[in-house]
Design a protein around this nucleic acid. Sequence first.
DNA 1: CATTAAGGTCACAGTTTGATTACAATAGTT
DNA 2: AACTATTGTAATCAAACTGTGACCTTAATG
Lengths: 224, 224
Amino acid sequence: MNALILIVEDEEDILELMEFNLGREGFETIGFLNTKRVAEVLAEEKVDLILMDRNLPGTEGSEYIASLRRQGINTPVIFISAKDKDEEIEQGFERGGDDYLTKPFRMKELVLRVKAILRRTQKTSNEGNITYRDITLNLASRTLIIENAPIELTKLEFDLLYALISNQNIVLDREYLLEHVWGGDEMYQDRTVNVAINRLKEKIDPDKSKEYIKTVRGVGYTLC
Amino acid sequence: MNALILIVEDEEDILELMEFNLGREGFETIGFLNTKRVAEVLAEEKVDLILMDRNLPGTEGSEYIASLRRQGINTPVIFISAKDKDEEIEQGFERGGDDYLTKPFRMKELVLRVKAILRRTQKTSNEGNITYRDITLNLASRTLIIENAPIELTKLEFDLLYALISNQNIVLDREYLLEHVWGGDEMYQDRTVNVAINRLKEKIDPDKSKEYIKTVRGVGYTLC
DNA sequence: CATTAAGGTCACAGTTTGATTACAATAGTT
DNA sequence: AACTATTGTAATCAAACTGTGACCTTAATG
């Protein structure tokens, strides 16, 4: 679940530099040279942070943000601007900025400030993640991401994968799985586990190239 | 509900200046010349923000914050420091800083950055607006706006949507909803939730084109 | 290499689950 | 009191999920 950062910057080379540096840190970026299509994207995509230049052709970046704020859009904003006078910076914050970086700035510092804001605003959604190799399981949202792509699982499949991933390197036998994943009262055959495991394998690794789940013959299954 | 700001700064005159300027803006402040009694105060009072100098006698401010973070204390922090090298700033952010101000700094800018952080971290508790995509919920007036158009909800529907929207990306099961939306004492069937959800869906998305509320089969519902 | 036991694959049917609708009970309003 | 809005419950329907059995494949062992 990588953060999506929307950037508005009219100097094309700076925009590219920003996108490159943020991309290298694992962020997804959408860059614009002006504000024309920004509102559209904000309505369609879940943008986590906006980087906004103030000196744009035609528009004043902080005024644009103020208008977004009036529409109830609360996406965090970092202003990037050559305007470094006290009153100008004040204006930026008052129009709804969360941070303010004056040009020229160091890319390193931009990245740090972006991370600091996202750490705070995204905290809740990033808690409760368990990972194994390129698999990420989020307990709260009950979602599974493999290689940055979401995959749908049924309740049983999710619970089963959760049991496996929270017991990495430990072989879970069928009895244990029936007990903990299916729940104790009903009686099931051991075969039931085989089929469920295979359905899970099919969903998380259709090509059978990853071999996440290892079968331990005569015992059970493990993620290792 | 004035925010309480804890300041650690070993230069007494700067500390006084900070307290004076922040006090003038309506903030309450507690100043310290070192970190000795800080943990104690954090345990007792609800501190909204920490301003932390890094060069303290005996202690290194960012290390101190890192140790607080390890204890699970998430209070926002602004570092104030003469350390302005790239790596030093990086270290500050990595140890859990939310912002970083290099000495010498302008009091005006400090106040702006303090306000910006408090605006974001206190938003939910102060302002009564919560949004999700094009939905805006106002707690105070108990009104719902979707795409700039007001929509009437019953009490139950409002409470239900509030539970969902304040737990975005988290799957809420029927038990949780019955407990938190309906209230604990009475006994209800799980089906009751289904019907209420569908009535809510019908009101907020009559065309069934938006798919705000996602059903998680076998578990519950979520806004994601 | 043959045998055998365990696991994989597949199709199907029963079960579970949720959506939808209608209706009744309740509370609030005029 | 009559009316209306609200909401819990029951009945019905459709879809999704999953257990099972039949059959196939694989791995271990001698």
